[in-house]
């Protein structure tokens, strides 16, 4: 299982702040995970549609599509940050 977190505008458009998800067997990356989320639910398809800007962190470090994910990981999706 992995923990998925969603923040800010992404959390609002998905109506979800946190979920647990079982990973398929074999190697997973952020990219394969996002593909799965896209095909699972229209809200995710929309939120992660090409052209939409989002960021990802794996275990609280900035990551990218190629970053591997494994059971136990905390994977957070959010819009580009706007602090400061």
């Amino acid at each position: 299982m992995v923990t998925l977190l969603y923040f800010a505008g992404l959390r609002e458009s998905l109506g979800c702040s946190r979920e647990e998800l079982a990973l398929p067997s074999g190697n997973s990356t952020v990219s394969s995970l996002v593909e799965r989320l896209r095909s699972r639910d229209p809200r995710w398809t929309q939120a992660f549609a090409p052209g939409n800007s989002w960021r990802v962190a794996v275990n609280q470090r900035m990551a990218d599509l190629a970053t591997p994910v494994k059971p136990g990981d905390e994977i957070a999706f959010f819009p580009p940050v706007t602090g400061g």
Binding site: A76, T82, G84
Partner: peptide, 23 residues
Amino acid sequence: YLKTRAPFWKREDTTHGSRWVEA
């Protein structure tokens, strides 16, 4: 670096309603 890498998000209440600030 804080502006582009630290996970903060601003939501503002404006005369046009409430909105997330765009990066």
